[in-house]
């Protein structure tokens, strides 16, 4: 679970494009997208990552909903954290998160009923996404509202990005389409395996093997150069 974080010190410089961001707010946003990407690096929120990434539309919807809940709960938690007794803080955070999840669920059902139906119970299950409680406890409760929101945006974008990538691969290979538009033509035989549960594990597994391969390659090149 924590294995990949050990490599962060060596891989950090290559990961951030251009010059390192000066302001802390910008750094808070970028951290969630790259260095501490919730799915690829921290392995948080695996259940929705696997369960809803069989089509790109579902992946994006789940990512955006999680982004909304992350920002909302981060803001509220950072505002009220110092008035809450230590013993009941987890329960309070969970309740704040559950409120925003209910909101997101209702908004999605009102605007995109088809996607809401496809996500089914995985929409309310965002409450049990360890990413949300993890960010509330480890970050939002300790900083001011501005940084908490920035962190929520970063983590949410990182989550959306990973989910979109996985679901794009799975939909393209498993269905021959993207966002419902047929891309590979009628002669393409769909890999049904990719939209089924084992395909989810395999896609993320191969993505992680590739990422580890890139990190290892860069480490060796740096060693040879030194």
């Amino acid at each position: 679970m924590t294995a990949i974080t050990t490599d962060q010190s060596t891989s950090t410089p290559e990961f951030v494009p251009g010059t390192p961001p000066p302001a802390t707010v910008v750094a808070d946003i970028w951290r969630g997208i790259l260095r501490e990407n919730p799915v690829m690096v921290q392995f948080l929120g695996m259940c929705p990552t696997m369960a809803v990434t069989n089509t790109l539309a579902n992946g994006i919807a789940m990512g955006m909903a999680t982004l909304f809940v992350l920002v909302g709960s981060g803001l509220i938690v950072s505002l009220v954290a110092k008035y809450i007794a230590h013993e009941v803080r987890i329960t309070t955070y969970i309740l704040v998160i559950a409120t925003f999840v209910t909101l997101a669920d209702m908004i999605l059902a009102a605007t995109f009923p088809d996607i809401s139906k496809a996500l089914g119970p995985f929409m309310p299950l965002i409450v049990a996404n360890c990413l949300l409680l993890g960010r509330a406890e480890a970050f939002a409760a300790k900083v001011g509202p501005v940084r908490a929101v920035a962190d929520g945006v970063g983590m949410g974008l990182g989550f959306t990005f990973s989910l979109s990538l996985l679901s794009a691969i799975r939909e393209l290979l498993g269905n021959g389409s993207l966002l419902g538009y047929d891309l590979l033509g009628p002669r393409f035989e769909p890999w049904v395996f990719m939209v089924m549960p084992p395909g989810g594990f395999l896609t993320l597994g191969i993505a992680l093997l590739g990422l580890a391969g890139i990190i290892e390659f860069r480490r060796r090149r740096a060693e040879r150069a030194a």
């Binding site: 549960p197 084992p198 989810g200 993320l204 597994g205 093997l209």
Partner: peptide
């Protein structure tokens, strides 16, 4: 292999287990 010492291999194993359950 070095690149498979982290979560990548675990996920591929999970995929095989999941396939068995399918």
């Amino acid at each position: 292999p070095v690149i498979a010492r982290r979560m990548g291999l675990v996920l591929v194993v999970a995929s095989c287990l999941s396939m068995a359950f399918m």
